[in-house]
Design a protein around this nucleic acid. Structure first.
Lengths: 204, 204
DNA sequence: AAAGCTACAGATTCCGCCTTTCTGTTCCCC
DNA sequence: GGGGAACAGAAAGGCGGAATCTGTAGCTTT
């Protein structure tokens, strides 16, 4: 059931008429505007111009619809990291740009901002449940970039990538610290100065 | 007002009859057992064997009482980190043991566990409000240990310490990742292998 | 084959209303 | 300076009934 849903969203194919996409767009817009709790399936149906039953037929339940929205947002987020680290010459660059892209992507995400501000109690469980899985996916993408930039040295890139992501998440959730990470330039400088050190020095 | 409260708790002095301590003990026990919301000031007064008015005279309000409890717990937590990193010969050791002590201290903290499980919606605001300040305090302690173990090399120990703490916090909030941190030994190995790299190599 | 529409049962939420409890303050006694 | 009683206002809890929402089913339409 979940695998089916994932499969439908994975390739971008499997949705020739674009109805799933239209429903997901409508749901995303509703959730971004009103939060999760106050949005009914009918609200989504109206905005999407479809019948309520169609949503149930395609997604099963409101919760599964939400999960599908989240899944798609995660895919976009990962795509952003992937794009920002594509073809960088060194592993250091990949660490820096991956960190910058991840932090900026999360900071500017409308749905995340809305939920975090409007229904934080719904966020912590979501974080404990699926947060780990999302992080594993992001970690693998980042680790792959690192590995390509510096092939065959046996570095534990997956762990390095996960630590990067965890630092980024904690900066998001606990803003008040002493780290100066106000804009992209500051974030980049911090990552370059401190986070790249977790990579083994190869050339020097 | 807050400074006054902090001053009274700071030295351990200023509470000759131990009444503040008894009230704080009672409040802590109540909060650990029943959570934050369901505990009334009278519950605390009964357990502490004092009049309700005394609590108001000494702490001002229920919220300030809670803040005082949290403050004391933070002091204990910081004391644990401080003790665990005392007199270690190298900065690497301080990083490792500070990380281990911080993670274990948070994981085994009864009040933290209770609130996280029973009223997570009260935790996220608390984290955004005071989390940063607590982290700054913990950071300074850790940074001081690192500096003592390796004096005068101009390393930015404060930032290193804060990153350590942020990684620890994120492990607490997002358990599902790929990091194997099940027991102290595993935590220690991870910290030794990956986190110490954020220190500049001095001797080699 | 799949979407739209209507109808429906059960669960959940919302609302107004009332009662209780809790908070924070005051005053007096010790 | 603490204990105790009394108090007003705020907040929380209980509780019916109404409305809404979820999820399902059956039938119609394209």
């Amino acid at each position: 059931m979940t695998a089916d849903l994932l499969a439908r969203l994975a390739g971008g194919a499997g949705d020739p008429d674009g109805l799933d996409t239209r429903i997901l767009d409508a749901a995303l817009a509703e959730f971004e505007t009103y939060g999760l709790r106050r949005v009914s399936v009918e609200d989504v149906a109206k905005r999407g111009g479809v019948a309520r039953t169609t949503i149930y037929r395609r997604f099963g339940s409101k919760d599964q619809l939400l999960q599908a929205v989240i899944l798609r947002e995660c895919r976009r987020f990962l795509g952003g990291i992937s794009a920002a680290t594509e073809g960088l010459p060194t592993a250091e660059d990949a660490v820096v740009e991956g960190f910058v892209a991840g932090l900026r992507g999360a900071r500017t995400h409308p749905l995340l901002a809305r939920v975090l501000e409007s229904e934080p109690e719904a966020f912590l469980p979501q974080l404990s449940m699926n947060g780990g899985a999302v992080m594993l996916a992001a970690r693998d993408i980042l680790a792959d970039r690192l590995r390509r930039a510096r092939p065959g040295d046996g570095e534990d890139y997956a762990t390095v990538a996960e630590v990067l992501l965890r630092v980024a998440v904690s900066v998001l959730l606990i803003p008040g610290g002493g780290l100066a990470l106000d804009d992209d330039a500051a974030v980049r400088a911090f990552a370059r100065e401190h986070l790249t050190r977790m990579l083994h020095r190869t050339g020097g």
